[in-house]
Design a protein around this nucleic acid. Structure first.
Ligand SMILES: [Mn+2]
Ligand SMILES: [Mn+2]
Ligand SMILES: [Zn+2]
Ligand SMILES: [Zn+2]
Lengths: 143, 143
DNA sequence: AAGTAGTTTAGAATAATTCTAAGTCGAGAA
DNA sequence: TTCTCGACTTAGAATTATTCTAAACTACTT
């Protein structure tokens, strides 16, 4: 009935591999956060939503560590940040080229595959600057 | 040498008109904020940057009033909000259709005229939802 | 001039995020 | 194995942007 070593062994191996490749020690907290983040389909989380979820699952991790880990994963290229709301920061497990619907009422993100939207006519960046990326956010609401 | 009634009368008339049309009382604070915002070319401000500027100009307004006024102007359609930074909210005097460069290093916005960028292939919103607007942010940095 | 609702504001309160400093842990060395 | 040390975690304080409260003030009507 308690958690067995076997139960945890399901997600850990590939998560440990990810962390190793990123040069991050596979600590208990990082492994647990990584399997929640990367163990299923792509997802969008806030620090607090992920912390709640992980605490709910009986895992002991502080909110500070969740923030630290999300930033480390982002630096390592395992996550990207999505800026759609002035009040909250979102992190996205899908680091590939894609865009978002943002449901302003629920504060929820939905992926739009990268090939779907075409952005044409982006001017060249001012002298001495380079384009880091082009974000498209389709803001939607109950109609 | 002090401010004369005549000096203030230059900007006030059109600002008062704007406020009247928006159903907002032309108070001293609103008139002063409005002439700073709308008295020249289009601009992007944060509550704090506008407050600093206005205080610097010798005007007595509280930060709370700047926040209130920016929100009231936004509701009235005189401003729009631009979300590019998770830490700060920006307000834009240009409410027409256009997009932005965002200089991530300086936290500065530059307008891209509305006809410049074309966004094609935006999928229809999920059932029961409507597209509020499509924002394009071209994030740039020193190269 | 008086009344009243709208407005301003100081200061407290919120909320997301970051920082500090002290304890804990992982991994290589011995 | 045990030792060692830098990496990691964390409680709680601090920071920052923004909002709220509730009391004082003011623009407009009568
Ligand atoms: Mn924030
Ligand atoms: Mn904020
Ligand atoms: Zn996404
Ligand atoms: Zn603009």
């Amino acid at each position: 009935m308690g958690k067995t070593m076997h139960e945890n062994a399901v997600a850990a191996p590939f998560a440990a591999e990810k962390l190793r490749l990123a040069g991050l020690r596979p600590t208990r907290q990082r492994l647990e956060l990584a399997s929640h983040l990367f163990g299923g389909p792509d997802r969008h989380v806030t620090a607090e939503s992920l912390h709640d979820e992980v605490v709910e699952a009986g895992i002991k991790v502080s909110l500070a560590t969740v923030y630290n880990t999300l930033h480390q994963f982002t630096q390592a290229g395992l996550l990207r940040q999505v800026i759609v709301d002035a009040a909250r920061g979102y992190f996205d497990t899908n680091t590939g080229d894609h865009q978002h619907f943002f449901l302003e009422d629920e504060g929820m993100l939905i992926d739009i595959p990268g090939e779907t939207i075409t952005v044409a006519g982006v001017p060249t960046a001012p002298p001495g600057m380079t384009v880091d990326r082009v974000d498209v956010v389709v803001r939607i609401r109950r109609s």
